[in-house]
Amino acid sequence: MEVRTIKVFTTVDNINLHTQVVDMSMTYGQQFGPTYLDGADVTKIKPHNSHEGKTFYVLPNDDTLRVEAFEYYHTTDPSFLGRYMSALNHTKKWKYPQVNGLTSIKWADNNCYLATALLTLQQIELKFNPPALQDAYYRARAGEAANFCALILAYCNKTVGELGDVRETMSYLFQHANLDSCKRVLNVVCKTCGQQQTTLKGVEAVMYMGTLSYEQFKKGVQIPCTCGKQATKYLVQQESPFVMMSAPPAQYELKHGTFTCASEYTGNYQCGHYKHITSKETLYCIDGALLTKSSEYKGPITDVFYKENSYTTTIK
């Protein structure tokens, strides 16, 4: 009895394709271990004539594949690729409408935090270190965002349907971005203890939790000093293409032309909904596939993004 075979390709990165001759009487799992086709788990399936010449994702289970996976995804987590594939199996079914010149995501599976993050990423200057993220990001900007969303979920250790947080998501993504040249110098002034300067680099240099107003941050924000008295913390120097200011959701007025974009969060910790506000020729609110415009805006804002380049204080 002759062994019926077909020729397929296996890959971990969709760049390096490895030619395989597979036995049609055995499952993919018996031949390769966990195997995925377009995100779908085909591990328990036997090869079919229609699979001839198709590319299958496999887990990096030998040295060659491990090197290829690390170079593309910059992670050695053995569960990463499987999590990416199972997320992709959902995100490829989502709709990605162009809204006001940006790629958004039609609401499904509690994905409003991903839509808000995706919209924000198209408006701030950011370059990702893992080629996987950078490639998928370019495709997302062009309207094909399924891979990018699935990668975000995998890097953030999230599953489809789980509630997510924009600030946490951005923080994970910033860790995989090139923020080497970003720098922030802060000064804390206390009447009792004097003053202390701190220099922050990388992710810490672009994120701040405690106030939404970048102007206020430049002037000074009140913080408790270690001595128990009130101290003032203010920005001395900022070198970065953008800054992200966050605070627990509270009524906040966004003035046209003073910011790049913002995240609105309605609801409580267990259950809520994100919308995205962007400042173009007027203010726009993007909620999944829905767009509304207004000249002014007041609502429960939790993150505001500002364009920056270089700032030095005039406070002496």
Rank of each mutant, 00 (worst) to 15 (best):
E2V: 11
E2A: 11
V3E: 15
I6P: 05
I6S: 08
I6N: 03
I6D: 10
K7E: 12
K7R: 13
V8Q: 01
F9V: 09
F9G: 08
T10K: 12
T10P: 07
T11C: 03
T11S: 11
V12W: 10
D13V: 01
D13C: 03
N16P: 09
N16H: 15
L17Y: 08
Q20S: 13
V21L: 14
V21G: 11
V22W: 04
D23I: 13
D23R: 12
M24Q: 13
M24A: 15
M24G: 08
S25V: 13
S25Q: 14
M26K: 15
T27W: 11
T27S: 11
G29L: 08
Q30I: 09
Q30L: 14
F32Y: 09
F32A: 08
F32C: 09
G33E: 06
P34F: 05
P34L: 09
Y36M: 08
Y36N: 04
G39V: 06
G39P: 05
A40Q: 14
D41C: 10
V42R: 06
T43L: 04
T43Y: 09
I45E: 14
I45V: 14
I45L: 12
I45T: 13
K46I: 10
K46Q: 10
P47N: 02
H48S: 12
H48E: 15
N49R: 13
S50I: 14
S50W: 15
H51P: 05
H51W: 07
H51G: 06
G53S: 11
G53Q: 10
K54S: 14
T55D: 09
F56D: 04
F56G: 01
Y57N: 08
V58K: 09
V58Y: 06
L59G: 08
L59C: 14
P60Y: 07
N61G: 10
N61Y: 14
D63K: 08
T64H: 10
T64A: 13
E68K: 11
A69I: 07
A69W: 09
A69E: 07
E71C: 12
E71V: 08
H74I: 03
T75F: 04
T75V: 11
T76G: 12
D77F: 06
P78H: 09
F80H: 04
L81W: 02
M85V: 10
M85L: 13
M85K: 12
S86N: 15
S86Q: 15
S86K: 14
A87M: 02
A87T: 04
L88I: 02
N89P: 08
H90M: 11
H90N: 09
W94R: 06
W94V: 05
W94T: 03
K95W: 11
Y96Q: 05
Y96D: 03
P97V: 12
P97I: 10
Q98F: 08
Q98L: 13
V99R: 07
N100F: 06
G101L: 05
L102F: 09
T103W: 12
I105F: 01
K106S: 13
W107P: 02
W107D: 00
W107A: 01
A108H: 00
C112G: 01
Y113A: 08
L114H: 03
A115Y: 07
A115H: 06
T116W: 00
A117H: 03
A117W: 02
A117M: 11
A117G: 00
L118W: 05
L119G: 01
L121K: 04
L121Q: 07
L121G: 04
Q122F: 02
Q122Y: 06
Q122N: 04
Q123H: 06
Q123K: 03
Q123S: 06
I124N: 06
I124M: 08
K127W: 04
P130Q: 04
P131L: 05
A132M: 00
L133Y: 04
L133V: 03
L133K: 00
Q134K: 10
A136Y: 09
A136E: 14
A136C: 03
A136D: 04
Y137M: 15
R139H: 11
R139Y: 09
R141Y: 09
A142Q: 13
G143Q: 09
E144T: 07
A146W: 08
N147Y: 11
F148E: 06
A150L: 04
L151M: 07
I152Y: 01
A154V: 02
Y155K: 02
Y155M: 01
C156R: 03
N157I: 03
N157Y: 07
N157Q: 11
N157W: 07
N157D: 07
K158Q: 03
K158L: 06
T159L: 05
G161K: 06
E162M: 05
E162L: 00
L163I: 06
L163M: 11
G164P: 00
G164Y: 01
D165Y: 01
V166M: 10
V166K: 00
R167A: 02
E168C: 07
T169S: 08
M170Q: 01
M170N: 02
M170Y: 06
S171Q: 13
Y172R: 14
L173G: 02
L173H: 00
F174A: 00
Q175L: 07
N178F: 05
N178H: 09
D180W: 04
D180N: 11
S181A: 12
C182Q: 08
C182V: 06
K183C: 10
K183F: 09
R184A: 09
R184M: 02
V185D: 05
L186D: 03
C190Y: 05
C190R: 03
K191D: 11
T192P: 02
C193H: 05
Q195G: 08
Q196M: 11
Q196I: 10
Q196V: 10
T198S: 10
T199V: 09
T199L: 07
L200D: 11
L200E: 09
K201F: 15
G202W: 02
A205K: 01
A205V: 05
V206R: 02
M209K: 10
G210W: 07
G210D: 00
T211L: 13
T211I: 13
L212M: 02
L212Q: 04
Y214D: 07
Y214F: 08
E215A: 07
E215N: 04
Q216N: 07
F217N: 02
K218H: 04
V221L: 12
I223L: 10
I223V: 15
I223E: 13
C225D: 00
T226F: 10
C227G: 02
C227S: 02
C227V: 03
C227W: 01
K229S: 13
K229V: 06
Q230C: 06
Q230M: 15
Q230R: 10
Q230F: 14
A231T: 04
A231P: 02
T232C: 03
K233I: 14
K233E: 14
K233Q: 13
V236L: 08
V236E: 05
Q237C: 11
Q237D: 01
Q237G: 03
Q238G: 01
S240Y: 00
F242C: 01
F242D: 03
M244L: 06
M244Y: 01
M244E: 01
M244V: 08
M245Y: 09
S246E: 06
P248G: 01
P248V: 09
Q251L: 10
Q251V: 08
Y252A: 08
E253A: 09
E253I: 12
L254E: 04
K255H: 09
K255V: 12
K255T: 09
K255G: 01
H256E: 08
G257V: 03
T258S: 08
F259L: 01
T260F: 01
A262R: 02
A262N: 00
S263N: 12
S263M: 02
S263I: 01
E264S: 07
T266V: 10
T266H: 06
G267Q: 05
G267A: 00
N268W: 04
N268Q: 06
N268D: 14
Y269F: 11
Y269E: 13
Y269Q: 15
Q270L: 10
C271G: 12
G272F: 09
Y274Q: 00
K275M: 02
H276A: 03
H276M: 08
H276I: 03
I277W: 14
K280Y: 08
K280G: 14
E281V: 01
E281Y: 00
T282I: 07
L283E: 00
Y284W: 15
Y284Q: 12
Y284C: 14
Y284I: 09
C285N: 06
I286T: 00
I286A: 04
D287P: 03
D287F: 04
D287A: 01
G288N: 07
G288P: 03
A289Q: 08
A289W: 04
A289M: 08
L290R: 11
L291Y: 15
L291T: 12
T292E: 10
T292S: 12
T292M: 10
S294M: 15
S294A: 13
G299R: 05
G299E: 07
P300E: 09
I301S: 00
I301N: 08
I301L: 00
I301F: 00
I301Y: 00
I301P: 00
D303F: 00
D303Q: 05
V304H: 01
Y306Q: 11
Y306M: 01
Y306D: 06
K307P: 14
K307T: 15
E308A: 06
Y311G: 06
Y311P: 07
T312E: 09
T314K: 15
T314E: 12
K316W: 15
K316S: 15
K316C: 15
